[in-house]
């Protein structure tokens, strides 16, 4: 007689049957590709440092990475790279740029205002909201407890 599994018993069964993510391979790929991206950024920084002060030079590097990512996303190359690189590309600013560009492209079919513009932050919105909130909180702590001393 067929008897339905209990939720607990089935979840144990599913755990056993589901192959785990290839963590080691993913970590190595992320380390190597993320590291290469950092080396590339440092090279850019050294190059630009000859023409601008440090703060501006760092900003320019970020801007260049954003532009390159946006172009690669538009050309349909970025997602293939990120499939291999994983966190190596998603943690740096390239991941943020891609998360803004990709919905902008995807939802262009629903119009420039309600499609592209509205959906543009559907993934990045969380980063912006919590990033800004934490920055404000940190700013307040810094202002009252460290600068005030």
């Amino acid at each position: 007689m067929f008897e339905r599994y209990s939720v607990n018993k089935y979840s144990e069964k599913v755990k056993k049957a589901t192959p785990p993510s290839v963590t080691v391979k993913n970590c190595i790929a992320a380390f190597l590709i993320g590291g290469l991206l950092c080396v590339f950024s440092e090279m850019l920084f050294t190059l630009i440092s000859g023409y601008a002060d440090e703060i501006n030079a760092r900003t320019y590097v970020s801007m260049i990475l954003v532009v390159i990512t946006a172009a690669l996303t538009g050309l349909g190359i970025y997602d293939k790279l990120a499939y291999v690189a994983g966190a190596g590309l998603s943690v740096p600013i390239s991941g943020f740029a891609n998360s803004v560009c990709s919905p902008a492209i995807e939802y262009a079919t629903e119009g420039h205002i309600l499609g592209t513009a509205e959906k543009m932050f559907s993934i990045a919105g969380a980063v912006i909201v919590y990033g800004c909130s934490l920055a404000s909180l940190y700013g307040m702590i810094y202002y009252f407890f460290i600068m005030g001393q």
Binding site: T18, P19, P20, S21, V22, N26, T73, G74, G76, Y78, D79, L81, A82, Y83, A85, G86, L89, S90, G95, N98, S99, C101, S102, P103, I105, E106, Y107, I123
Partner: peptide
């Protein structure tokens, strides 16, 4: 993908399941 997951050009990895 558009309705259930992420935009096509969004770079992410997929789980083996």
């Amino acid at each position: 993908e558009k309705q259930f997951r992420y935009p096509l050009e969004y770079g992410c990895q997929r789980s083996p399941s």
